[in-house]
């Protein structure tokens, strides 16, 4: 069971992770602690591993800063569902191994605190089933590897 955090339209990267922290905070714990600081201070305090982000149109608009994805990842978010994503944010999700799911209906029916399940590649929510649409094979390969860094680590021999 995955617990949902639901936010609205046009949530930008400045409120997901403020720009003033981008060159000074480095550890996952520090970065996760600032997630959504200017939007919902409760989020960083109460988010749990395995929770799901659900949002409206244009989630992640604004800056290219990757911490807007990694802050959520470090906080335990593994899936982001939105009516639509900013293009750069969508790419940052893929490269961090976070599956971005575009689905307006889920945004409309889910409220913060609701729970969903993923069964056989489909999202089960409120008694309804929403298949997760396939990505192109080369993009799916990045998700399957756990992100672009793990994928490249296989090629360049890096160690964690």
């Amino acid at each position: 069971m995955m617990r949902c955090w639901v936010y609205g339209d046009d949530v930008n990267t400045d409120v997901i992770f403020p720009g003033k922290y981008t060159y000074t905070l480095k550890t996952p714990e520090e970065i996760a602690a600032k997630a959504l600081e200017d939007l919902d201070p409760n989020f960083a305090r109460h988010v749990r591993p395995g929770d799901v982000m659900v949002a409206g149109r244009n989630w992640g608009c604004g800056s290219s800063r990757e911490q807007a994805v990694t802050a959520l990842k470090y906080a335990g978010i593994q899936l982001i569902i939105a009516a639509s994503f900013n293009g750069l944010y969508f790419r940052n999700c893929i490269n961090q191994g976070i599956r971005p799911v575009v689905n307006d209906k889920l945004y409309q029916i889910l409220k913060t605190g609701d729970v969903i399940e993923i069964i056989d590649g489909a999202i089960h929510a409120k008694g309804q089933i929403f298949p997760i649409p396939p990505l192109s094979p080369s993009v799916q390969a990045i998700i399957d590897a756990g992100g672009l860094v793990p994928m490249l680590r296989q090629r360049f021999g890096g160690v964690r």
């Binding site: 290219s64 800063r65 990757e66 994805v69 750069l88 790419r91 940052n92 490269n95 961090q96 080369s138 993009v139 990045i142 992100g147 672009l148 860094v149 490249l152 360049f156």
Partner: peptide, 17 residues
């Protein structure tokens, strides 16, 4: 614009999907 991971990948491979 690209993310930091993408830039690291570009440094390493010279390419980006």
């Amino acid at each position: 614009g690209v993310g930091r991971t993408e830039m690291a990948s570009l440094w390493a491979t010279g390419q980006l999907w």
